[in-house]
């Protein structure tokens, strides 16, 4: 259906009426930058939406002691323009600044960014019943998969969020108000999971759950960066992206490294071997090369996306190289 504010199923959220969102046919609505195009194109057949833009949910970005707390309704622009956050964790501002257009960034919320549907063209074709939409097959596996994940799974769509990779690299958590009234905190890395047969979604949120905020520990002196390969200067989903959070001591030794890739998996993919390769070693051309070489470990090339392996290795190397020597 075409979604418009006059749709009979449009409701502003009253926190007491949580049951409204306990069905699969109802969606939370905040920025709407992904939801509305999906509804207009017929991919999502929405019975109703519950608008949380003006709800009690937070939009603030604040640091409390050594923890950063980002309200679920904070926009991507709020993050990009937050001077202290940008100075402390440049990778966040880099990731959101490289996402979408300025107009979308002004509108899109942080929580919504994490919950985007796949960018897969088969998924976004309302006439195709792909595996993610309940079908039996993933047409991308043997079809056009130039932009798909390097994985051998029932669905090979990528996780489209750039920010998600940075948050996973930061070991960030999301705070969730559960549909049953409970509150819980889970790592972003647990929120964003590969889809499985009985949960065909890029996330583990259940109907009626709502993200209220994100939190992560200030990375202190760690360096951070997010690089994103696009074949247009701006406004493109990542072919491949790499987030790197690296703590280097005075003797140029890597105390800890957290590398996470976008565009190669249906989750923000932790480059565990690459990260471990670096830890305890001096950041040198040699150690960086080792990390880059290990980046594609465990990934499976499909018919058209093998080039992403080269991009991934290249971006790992280029994310680390500027951190050498100081």
């Amino acid at each position: 259906m075409t979604l418009s504010p006059v749709t009979s199923g449009y409701t502003r959220w009253d926190q007491s009426d949580r049951r409204l969102v306990s069905s699969d046919e109802t969606e939370w609505f905040a920025g709407g930058t992904d939801l509305i195009p999906l509804a207009r194109s017929g991919v999502l057949d929405l019975d109703s939406v519950v608008d949380i833009k003006s709800s009690h949910l937070e939009r603030t970005v604040q640091r409390i002691d050594d923890r950063w707390r980002i309200g679920a309704l904070a926009t991507l622009s709020d993050l990009a323009e937050h001077e202290e956050l940008t100075a402390t964790v440049p990778a966040i501002a880099q990731a959101v600044s490289q996402s979408a257009t300025l107009q979308i960034r002004h509108r899109a919320t942080v929580a919504g960014n994490l919950l985007q549907r796949p960018r897969c063209s088969y998924f976004r074709d309302p006439s195709i019943s792909c595996w993610m939409k309940g079908g039996s097959d993933c047409p991308a596996r043997d079809g056009r998969n130039e932009h798909h994940a390097l994985i051998d799974e029932p669905c090979v769509a990528t996780q489209p969020s750039d920010l998600a990779s940075v948050l996973v690299a930061l070991d960030a958590d999301v705070n969730i108000d559960g549909h049953d009234g409970s509150e819980r905190t889970v790592p972003v890395a647990e929120l964003l999971q590969r889809p499985v047969a009985d949960r065909r979604s890029l996330h583990t949120l259940e109907s009626g759950d709502v993200i209220t905020s994100l939190e992560f520990t200030d990375p202190g002196t760690s360096r951070s960066t997010y690089l994103k390969a696009m074949n247009r200067a701006v406004w493109q989903f990542a072919l491949v992206g790499v987030a790197a959070i690296v703590d280097i001591d005075d003797r140029h030794t890597v105390v800890s490294a957290s590398l996470v890739a976008s565009g190669v998996d249906s989750v923000p993919r932790r480059l565990t071997t690459s990260s471990e390769t670096l830890t305890g070693r001096e950041l040198t051309a040699s150690s960086i090369a080792s990390a880059a070489d290990a980046a594609a470990d465990g990934l499976t090339e499909l018919s058209e996306n093998g080039y992403k392996t080269a991009l991934l290795r290249g971006l790992v190397q280029r994310s680390l190289e500027p951190m050498r020597g100081g």
Binding site: Q98, L227, K228, M230, A233, V234, G241, G314, R318
Partner: peptide
Amino acid sequence: AMKLPGGAGRTADAGD
């Protein structure tokens, strides 16, 4: 970055 391949993605420096 906008003068380099990859643009806003900051993927390159002149040496590449």
